[in-house]
């Protein structure tokens, strides 16, 4: 009798063991699959894009017959995207930093309010960028503004604002309580704590937040689709329409002419490398600035 039940449990154990082996295999496989997909994406973009990548592409604006496969480059889109991303990141930073400081200093004892604000931020982050774009376009028509760099900057800034605030907030959350208390006990006011202590302590978090938002701003196409327009010239003022890299890729790819399509792949290589550079930069800078924070 006893032997029998022993046999039963050992059988069950055996089954569990094989089940574990099987699922461990499946798990490892899915992790590998994710890494493999990233490799595949980068590989296929590079294979398609690098052959048509040339120095001309990144140093010239489109010339006369550019959209029929003649000479020229996409410098207008590169510069336009960089302007747009810098402007949007700057505005989002100016608005976002005080809000996240306010949440973590003034509201630090009102947990309910902070949680509500985080909830709203998460909701704002979830709103699709096309909704921001369409809404921004309606407002522009209402006010009689034409598609321009400034409009694109404002819409993109609104789009990346929640990411910026949440990322800085994550950094500020980790500031040790002891540091806050010791600065209070030395007689600092709340705004001194916020701008002189918290800000400095949180520099790695802020750098990550800024780079994250910059990457988001430079890559988003749906929000700028209606708001920034498209042009072959490099913008010289805020009220001019501007070309952006994602839209340049999108428009050129829908062309039936193979040479133009080739260029879209090359532009995709440029955009991908910008994103990869930002990613590496953010890792390096975070590690560098982490050395200067106070640790308990």
């Amino acid at each position: 009798m006893k032997k029998d039940s022993n046999k039963k449990t050992s059988f069950k154990k055996q089954r569990l063991k094989y089940e574990e082996y099987f699922f461990r295999g499946v798990m490892l496989l899915s992790s590998c699959l994710i890494a493999f997909i990233l490799g595949l994406i980068i590989y296929s973009i590079l294979v398609k894009g690098v052959p048509s990548l040339s120095w001309e592409m990144i140093t010239q604006t489109p010339k006369g017959g550019f959209y029929f496969g003649k000479e020229g480059g996409i410098l207008n889109a590169i510069i336009g995207s960089i302007y747009l991303a810098f402007g949007a990141t700057f505005i989002a930073f100016i608005i976002g930093l005080p809000i996240s400081l306010y949440m973590n200093v003034w509201l630090s004892h009102k947990e309910k309010w902070v949680n509500m604000l985080r909830f709203i931020l998460d909701l704002l982050w979830g709103i699709p960028s096309i909704v921001y774009g369409a809404f921004g376009f309606t407002i522009m028509i209402l006010l009689g503004i034409k598609a321009s760099l400034l409009a694109g900057i404002i819409v993109t800034a609104l789009l990346i604002l929640p990411i910026m605030i949440r990322a800085i907030d994550e950094g500020l959350k980790t500031v040790p309580k002891g540091l806050k208390e010791s600065s209070y006990s030395l007689g600092s006011t709340k705004s001194e704590l916020a701008f002189k202590i918290m800000l400095r302590q949180c520099i790695p978090g802020i750098v990550t937040a800024v780079l994250l938002s910059f990457g988001r701003a430079i890559g988003d196409a749906a929000a700028v689709l209606f708001t920034t327009g498209f042009t072959d010239n490099i913008p010289t003022a805020l009220n001019q329409p501007t070309a952006t890299l994602p839209l340049a890729i999108f428009f050129q790819l829908s062309s039936p002419i193979p040479e133009v399509k080739e260029r879209a792949y090359a532009a995709a290589v440029i955009l991908t490398s910008i994103i990869l550079i930002i990613s590496v930069l953010s890792r390096v800078l975070t590690q560098k600035y982490n050395k200067h924070t106070i640790k308990f």
């Binding site: 890494a35 994406i41 973009i45 890559g219 988003d220 792949y265 994103i275």
Partner: peptide
């Protein structure tokens, strides 16, 4: 790997979709 996948712009995913 996860961070980079999250950071790739949607246009690039679109291009990859068309290519691959």
């Amino acid at each position: 790997v996860i961070d980079i996948l999250a950071g790739i712009p949607s246009v690039i995913y679109g291009v990859w979709g068309i290519i691959a």
